[in-house]
């Protein structure tokens, strides 16, 4: 079956819409994931394929080309592999970090990458459906314009649905005062660790930074009490500021506040607060709060 030039333009336009949607979510920020440029290119290309799958599916269905549709659905299977590939890659690299990401954080990152490919599929599918549905009613220009608005609406809606939160949504972060009582190190009044060596005590007092993470409510306390979430925070701090020697955190049973001590290579308290504030809130902790009637992420 030959493809009409008009249909080819429709498919290309829908593919472009899905691709742009995926591209807009592919940020190279301070977390440096995906890595740049190779990791970035890999995800961009997978996003392009996902968009093409979404764009071709409706014309194939209209042409009653069921074999093509079957193959397109087989392509969906590969997007599930994206999660596995991303997870296994991050798990493998985790051994190279001084302080590992941990399984919970890796799972969250891998799921995000998978879901964003589905976003590209839905946006391109919406675009092509809008073009074809309005084709017989509106003029060509009007039809394309309507499809563009539909694509933007689909992007905004799905992005709002899958958008993750960060630590600053559930906790206030501030610098705490490091002190020693006998051989125990405290951040304000929170016991953090026992330090046996005098040289280490001196190093912590000279170069360490104490941080206080204060949950905003009861459910937020549960969220921050998750080992995976705390590991994610400690990982980002140690990876971005560098770890000279030591990082440890402990929760205060009375208040639920978390005290953390780190001896970073770059001693920048403001950067440290910024890093902690922007650590993603893991999906597993959000689920915990919702199942107990929490109002987090509810609007």
């Amino acid at each position: 079956m030959s493809l009409e030039p008009e249909m080819l333009v429709n498919i290309l336009f829908a593919t472009l819409a899905g691709f742009l949607s995926r591209w807009s979510l592919l940020k190279v920020d301070f977390r440096q994931n995906p890595t740049y440029p190779n990791g970035y290119l890999i995800h961009l290309m997978i996003g392009l394929i996902a968009s093409a799958v979404g764009a071709i599916s409706v014309p194939a269905l209209l042409a009653k080309d069921y074999v093509a549709i079957t193959f397109l659905f087989l392509a969906f299977e590969h997007f599930r592999d994206v999660r596995k590939i991303e997870a296994s890659s991050l798990e493998y690299l985790d051994k190279a970090h001084y302080y590992p990401r941990g399984a919970a954080y890796i799972d969250g990152i891998a799921k995000t990458f998978e879901s964003r490919n589905y976003l590209a599929i839905v946006v391109s599918l919406t675009t092509i459906t809008a073009i074809l549905a309005t084709g017989g009613v509106f003029s060509r220009t009007m039809s394309i314009t309507t499809a563009a608005f539909a694509a933007i609406a689909a992007h905004i809606l799905i992005n709002r649905f899958i958008k993750g939160q960060v630590i600053k949504a559930v906790a206030d972060i501030e610098i705490g005062e490091i002190s020693f009582r006998n051989h125990n190190v405290y951040v304000n009044d929170i016991y953090v660790a026992n330090i046996g060596l005098e040289v280490m005590k001196k190093r912590i007092l000279e170069r360490g930074i104490g941080v206080l993470i204060k949950p905003k409510g009861e459910n937020e306390k549960i969220m921050l009490n998750n080992i995976g979430q705390r590991q994610a925070i400690e990982h980002e701090c140690s990876r971005l500021l560098g770890l000279e020697k030591y990082i440890e955190s402990r929760r205060d049973f009375e208040t639920g506040n978390i005290g953390m001590v780190i001896i970073p290579i770059r001693k920048e308290p403001k950067s440290l607060i910024h890093i902690i504030e922007n650590v993603p809130l893991l999906e597993i902790v959000k689920k915990q709060a919702r199942s107990t009637g929490g109002n987090i992420n509810e609007k």
Binding site: N182, H183, N194, I195, G196, L197
Partner: peptide, 11 residues
């Protein structure tokens, strides 16, 4: 990890 107890013993 090097820890020190209140009685002065290092473990």
């Amino acid at each position: 990890n090097v820890c020190r107890l209140a009685n002065g013993l290092v473990i």
